[in-house]
């Protein structure tokens, strides 16, 4: 079985102005296949545009040598410190949320039964104690792991 042939688009003639408009995108590999063929065909036959293309590639080579801006020695430490602080706060949040939800539910139930704003109920205090025990256990676990 014969290999499928790869057909290359036929180049269209473009002017120097059109070519120079496309050169920046060309060096960035942002042109369509047709545009790429057109530019390459023109550059192969035009000294001025070939020279301009070389200059653009030169500028690109220069800038691409830039190593960027590295973080100071304290940067990573500062980010991790803040991250750990926030992640600890986030970890304890479900327990404080659960205590608040239990209290709200208990108050709602008491209001329904008596029609009066409730005093603190047994169920409420049980929920608070459970939440406190869970929070202490978590803090102990986190500090034990360091």
């Amino acid at each position: 079985m014969s290999e499928p042939s790869i057909t290359r688009s036929a180049p269209k003639e473009i002017t120097c102005e059109q070519c120079r408009d496309l050169l920046s995108e060309y060096v960035d590999h942002e042109l369509s296949d047709q545009e790429k063929v057109d530019v390459e065909h023109h550059v192969a036959t035009c000294i001025k545009c070939a020279s301009e293309s070389t200059r653009l590639v030169g500028i690109k080579n220069i800038v691409q040598n830039w190593e960027g801006v590295k973080g100071s020695s304290k940067f990573r430490e500062a980010v991790l410190e803040q991250y750990i602080s926030e992640s600890r706060m986030m970890a304890s949040k479900p327990f404080t949320d659960a205590a608040a939800a239990a209290r709200a539910e208990s108050q709602r139930q008491q209001e329904q039964e008596t029609g009066k704003p409730p005093a603190a109920s047994t169920a409420f205090w049980i929920a608070v104690v459970v939440a406190l025990i869970a929070t202490v256990a978590l803090v102990a676990f986190l500090f034990a792991g360091e």
Binding site: G68, V69, G71, F75, R76
Partner: peptide, 23 residues
């Protein structure tokens, strides 16, 4: 780390600001 700091530096042209914003 370096990519984000460099990105922020391209905006701010100040290393301290770039690090704060990257953080």
């Amino acid at each position: 780390e370096t990519q984000v700091i460099t990105f922020c530096y391209a905006f701010m042209r100040n290393r301290d600001s770039a690090e704060d914003l990257a953080q």
